[in-house]
Write a protein that binds this DNA or RNA. Structure first.
Length: 837
RNA sequence: GCCCGGGUGGCGGAACGGUUUACGCAGAGGACUUAAAAUCCUUGACCUUAAUAGGUUUGUGGGUUCGAAUCCCACCCCGGGCACCA
């Protein structure tokens, strides 16, 4: 190996830091480029982690050269289960573990020569930081977007905490892989569903990968339909059902309610087979969602005997079933079953021998109709069609019928238009130590006062009235600090370990001054990452001030880079909080991240994920030691398309080192023409490269940008004597964002420039200089390449024909055959079409 | 089951209606060296041919087109997401 650049790299990193070349925030145009901040785990970084950071760094440098004020900060997401589990395993306090890990991560990152402004470094576990996490929570609470719930939630028996739906992977705990259970638990829940429509709508204007938008859209899961009221025969009770297929209602032959449905217990005296029903319900409630909804599972259910519901459209009496395939938390927890037109209902009806009645005819496939009508149905027809046997709606299309039927429902006050979302409210409490404490206390006295309505108007906030007894800590008393403890193991009882610290728990009520107890649950890991992109903007002297001027200056984030795995977690949560902050006018824009890019994974050479378990982890420290930071940076960008997963290759990085060595060798060892004659060929290649590299960086096609830089350099090497110094300087500028250390060394040390290359301006290309004067014309006969001839650029079809037809090869091929037509693509090719003999 | 993304040399990939295989890696041959490493030069899919040359080839099969890796239809395989949402 020619030269190890590590000393050089370190030298420049120090100088850049000292000169503060990345902290130029005075330019009028701003660019905020953000990485998804890492979780400082005990394992340290492997070469896959920095792939996104290299890209953002490259873009930061590129934008700076284009004259932008570039903000590129970095920080640590350090609360939550992984840090706490790591601490438990290694028997050190999470606070110590976190600071140790951060130190390690920072060292590793700094070796890459990234442009981070470390003055703005943030850490979600810093009380000064979580003061504002708590502040946002208070605002949510105050505005009635937080409620206490005692519903059974998902519980991980290994992590000993409740989880949100989003924390599951394949129905198992995303952190430890354990089978989860259901457990009734006191919970704080955020009303994320109140923002469902805004979250969905906001997606439209975002420059995000379509697949991520699609994932969020599916997660939000909007359906438009109708809610219909079914009366119960001989009873005051009613059942409301939600359907998106109102047009099929004449085919409804029974109703199904979830075991949790309130109707079931309220009318149990009228149910003749109650013991049987009760048994079924008990069993169903024990199951987790996975067991209940697992795809292999057969549908089961039990009829509520002696009870009938009345279909408001035809006054038909239909039986009612309890079945666990109906979900309690979606829609009304009850459905009208139309077995002829819904696969699930069809399956259930077939199993329990219930009538199947077709009311929609297929317009596309009449065979299907013949089968359905009269004869035995063997499959549900779930598409739209034409209504039959549907009273006055017969003959309408599904679309039209849905409209008319809703009108009819609304007129007769039997139902209405309704929109439902799959997304659920966010279970926001964890029964663990290592998280943000809630800024809430419980006061018996205030609870009583609220219940007895003995309070002054305006004394309690919306949230306090919604959750009687829960009182907000005042803003001036934030942060509520996480107490220092010796033992922080989760109790497993569903109570947080904080419960045992009576000194901390017992406090004074900020409202009435009476005795109060602190909330002992903590916030989930995602809380701190919900607003960290704002935190960078408002940090000053280790403290944070909600500085609206700074926020306005920088938001939204212009470019956000990170992994796809956050599609329905962090990226949805953060958008939710942001939209809330927008509504209370704490931020000036309604979406936080304008453009999003996902980096692909870097897999180990064996094609598996890098993991300690497989012993296939590649450490960037080693790569940097052997090949240098620039070679590693360049290689990670060159490997393949940025958003695609790709396997590491230890040979590949060697090639990059070779490329850099060649550059250094050439520039430091040879004299070049300081002034030379104008060389059009070189100018052309140079300007083509400027264009290509610029466009490729804009489009995240770093691999092809690098390859065009290689093409240019190969030519420089070959024809060195014809290149001018300025040509070489242009090449170095184009390479600078990719290989910042080497280019800086050459720029300042070898070429003797005073100012950093990273403060130079980005080269511009001249479109006129790109045009070629000659081109290689492809001559095809019947679409097959038969010859290549040199031709002047811009020639007409006639001229091209003459050139093509004078080619000996072509003459031979078409001799004696009739030319049917000639296709000419200017500056590219000519295709002679002849009749086949 | 549904929704995305992807199948191109020995390998990573490039080209997204017009030369398939840019650029890089690995390989082969050569130069330098006592030798090796490093470096530099040459080479570069497959089949037929002594060579010239011709033919085949972008997962498979069909279609549109003067011309398809690229557009359309059907199927196969790999990766990811969602999953009884009425």
């Amino acid at each position: 190996m020619f030269k190890n650049f590590n000393k050089i790299s370190k030298k420049w990193q120090k100088i850049w830091e000292k000169e503060g070349i990345y902290k130029n925030y005075k330019k009028p145009k701003k660019f905020y480029v953000l990485d998804m901040f890492p979780y400082p785990s005990g394992e340290g970084l492997h070469v896959g982690h920095p792939r996104g950071y290299i890209a953002t760094d490259l873009i930061a440098r590129y934008k700076q050269m284009q004259g932008y004020s570039v903000l590129h900060p970095m920080g640590w997401d350090a609360f939550g289960l992984p840090a706490e589990n790591y601490a438990l395993k290694h028997k050190i306090h999470p606070k110590i573990a976190v600071s140790k890990n951060i130190k390690r991560f920072k060292e590793q990152l700094n070796k890459f020569g990234f442009t981070y402004d470390w003055d703005r470094e943030i850490n979600t576990t810093d009380p000064e930081y979580y003061k504002w996490t708590q502040w946002i929570f208070l605002k949510l609470f105050e505005n009635g977007l937080v409620y206490e719930s005692f519903e059974p939630i998902i519980w991980c028996p290994s992590c000993k905490t409740g989880l949100a739906l989003e924390d599951l992977e394949d129905g198992k705990c995303e952190r430890c892989g354990s089978e989860v259970e259901k457990k009734p638990l006191r919970q704080w829940v955020l009303k994320m569903t109140a923002y469902a429509e805004k979250l969905l709508k906001g997606l439209e204007e975002l420059d995000w990968p379509e697949s991520i938008k699609e994932q969020q859209k599916n997660w939000i899961g909007k359906s438009q339909g109708a809610e219909i009221e079914f009366r119960i025969l001989n009873s005051k009770f009613k059942i409301n059902v939600f359907t998106t297929r109102l047009d099929t209602i004449f085919g409804c032959t029974y109703l199904v309610v979830a075991p949790e449905h309130e109707l079931v217990s309220s009318i149990k005296h009228q149910v003749s087979n109650w013991p049987e029903v009760e048994k079924y319900i008990k069993q169903a409630k024990k199951k987790t969602d996975l067991q209940r909804t697992g795809l292999t599972k057969d549908k089961t259910g039990v009829e509520l005997k002696s009870i009938k519901a009345i279909n408001p459209f035809n006054n038909e009496e239909v039986p009612i079933f309890v079945a666990d395939y109906v979900l309690p938390h979606y829609g009304t927890g009850a459905v009208m079953a139309v077995p002829a037109h819904d696969e699930r209902d069809y399956e259930f009806a077939t199993k329990y021998n219930l009538p199947i009645r077709q009311v929609i005819l297929s317009q596309i496939n009449p065979d299907f109709n013949a089968d359905l009508r009269g004869k035995k149905i063997n499959k549900a027809f779930t598409e739209d069609g034409i209504l039959v046997d549907s009273g006055k709606f017969t003959g309408m299309t599904s679309e039209k019928a849905r409209q008319e039927m809703i009108k009819w429902l609304e007129k007769n006050k039997l139902g209405s238009r309704k929109i439902n979302y799959k997304m659920r409210d966010w279970v926001f409490a964890r029964q663990r130590y290592w998280g943000e404490p809630f800024p809430l206390v419980f006061c018996e006295n205030c609870a009583k006062r609220i219940k007895n309505k003995k309070y002054k108007k305006g004394e309690f906030t919306k949230g306090e009235l919604l959750n009687p007894g829960w009182i907000q800590i005042q803003e001036k008393d934030l942060p509520v600090k996480l107490p220092e403890v010796k033992y922080y193991e989760p109790s497993g009882t569903g109570e947080s370990p904080l419960t045992n610290i009576s000194k901390w728990v017992n406090t004074e009520c900020p409202k009435c001054g009476g005795l109060a107890k602190r909330e002992t649950n903590t916030m989930p890991q995602w809380a701190g990452s919900n607003w960290y992109y704002v935190a960078y903007l408002i940090k000053k002297n280790k403290k944070y001030q909600w500085d609206k001027k700074e926020i306005k200056k920088w938001l939204p984030v212009d470019l956000y880079v990170g992994g796809v795995e956050h599609a329905t977690r962090h990226l949805l949560y953060a958008r939710f909080w942001h939209k809330f902050l927008y509504d209370i006018k704490a931020v000036p824009v309604n979406e936080p991240f304008k453009k999003l890019m996902n980096q692909g994974l870097i897999l180990a050479e064996d094609g598996r994920k890098m993991s300690k378990r497989w012993g296939n982890v590649i450490n960037p420290d080693d790569m940097i030691r052997i090949f240098g930071a620039d070679a590693l940076r360049l290689y990670e960008m060159f490997m393949g398309p940025f958003d695609q997963s790709i396997a590491w290759s230890s040979d590949g990085i060697r090639g990059m080192k070779r490329f850099l060595d060649r550059i250094y060798k050439l520039v430091s060892g040879v004299r070049y023409q300081v002034s030379g004659n104008k060389n059009e060929k070189i100018e052309r290649l140079l300007h083509q490269t400027i264009k290509k590299v610029t466009e490729d960086i804009e489009n995240f096609r770093f691999n092809t940008a690098i390859s065009s830089l290689m093409i240019l350099f190969n030519d420089i090497e070959k024809n060195l004597q014809t290149y001018k110094l300025t040509n070489l300087q242009t090449f170095l500028k184009l390479l600078a964002p990719f290989a910042p250390h080497l280019t800086e060394e050459i720029w300042r040390n070898v070429l003797g420039n005073k100012k950093s290359i990273h403060l130079e301006s980005w080269p511009k290309y001249n479109p006129k200089l790109i045009e070629e004067e000659k081109f290689e014309m492809i001559v095809q006969v019947n679409g097959k390449v038969r010859d290549r001839v040199s031709a002047p650029s811009g020639i007409s079809q006639k001229e091209a024909e003459n050139i093509a037809l004078s080619s000996e090869k072509i003459k031979k091929l078409i001799a004696g055959l009739k030319i049917k037509k000639i296709i000419f693509v200017p500056n590219r090719l000519i295709n002679i079409v002849i009749s086949q003999s």
